[in-house]
Design a protein around this nucleic acid. Structure first.
Lengths: 190, 190
DNA sequence: GTCTATATAGTGATAGAC
DNA sequence: GTCTATCACTATATAGAC
């Protein structure tokens, strides 16, 4: 993933700038300036600005989908799946902070790959919904409006990339434990 | 607020487009096209694209601050304040859906008014923090990491504009009751 | 209040020298 | 792998006619 080539340097720089100002407000000259080269030099390593967005958003979305699919196929309870899914989401947030900003905020600027992205996004959400519904049916979770619980959970997870960048130095494990506890407490039936 | 002048029509149109693509990706031509006029005609009603952003973001932020200040000054318990604050946030979300998207996602493109906005945003967050801390001290809320509870609560409220636009036809009262219940359950000590 | 015409400054991207 | 030079296009915004 992080193979210190020039190309990856460009991708990482783009991610940082996309996070700060958004895809549309970042110019190829901005990216080049950050690397102390000229904008035209970027094109020796990447094909287009759009490609930078695709690299960031699509590969991260695939990582989400693959990890989630593994969790869904485990022979464990709904509450155990939920705990794993939350931890997994926190993991990605911590290790792909900048790319996650692009995924959250700039996906609508994807062109060719937009439908593919939307399918992955929808599948990811559906997996969470299934976990919550299963847990409510089995009595592990308190019965409440599924969509509201789902929305509240996903909102918190999706915004985590901002909060983690700000609070910085809380350890990964502390974050996972506290966050998971807080989120899970709101739905456990006991 | 909604005084059907041409100017307000332009502001409303801009808000809808800003929500869809973000401030930077929306051109004055896009706004003009939506109104079936030429881009140059817009400048008879507004001064600049930046002014459109300011009108949307700053006036809404002021509404948030004013409402929150009133709640903070009421002689009521922390849990009552929290319930009112959540309801108030939901109120604004429902009635200013598009402008709220700009406030959430495009505030960093403010220029002159950016410091003013950041102060308001910080004050709003601090008020929520005070409520949570007071409630934990008094024993109304279960003692947990204040910042994580605060973050989770604000994430859900800030994302609500997206969810409400999608789910559409759930009544305002149903939403308030279900959402407030779900959010509050996670922190009440009983 | 809207139009046409235009000024001025970017924008993403390419060609070709070094 | 980076540069200079440049293209074709688009951006915000203004001036002045109707």
């Amino acid at each position: 993933m992080t193979k210190n080539t020039r190309r990856d340097e460009i991708v990482r720089t783009a991610a940082i700038l996309f996070k700060k100002k958004g895809y549309s407000a970042v110019t190829m000259r901005d990216i080049a300036d950050s690397l102390d080269i000229k904008a035209s030099s970027l094109y020796n390593h990447i094909q287009s600005k759009q490609e930078l967005l695709e690299i960031l958003v699509i590969s991260l979305a695939e990582e989400f989908i693959n990890g989630m699919n593994k969790i869904m196929n485990l022979p464990i309870s709904a509450s155990e799946k939920l705990r794993l899914a939350i931890d997994f989401h926190i993991d990605i947030t911590i290790h792909n902070n900048e790319a996650l900003a692009a995924l959250n905020n700039d996906w609508m600027h994807l062109e060719e790959k937009l439908p593919y992205f939307l399918k992955m996004r929808n599948d990811y959400e559906q997996n969470f919904r299934t976990i919550i519904e299963t847990g409510m049916t089995s009595g592990e979770f308190v019965k409440r409006d599924v969509e509201i619980v789902l929305f509240s959970l996903l909102s918190t997870l999706r915004n985590l990339y901002l909060w983690y960048a700000r609070k910085g130095r809380v350890s990964e494990d502390t974050l996972k434990n506290n966050m998971a506890d807080t989120l899970l407490k709101s739905i456990f039936s006991t």
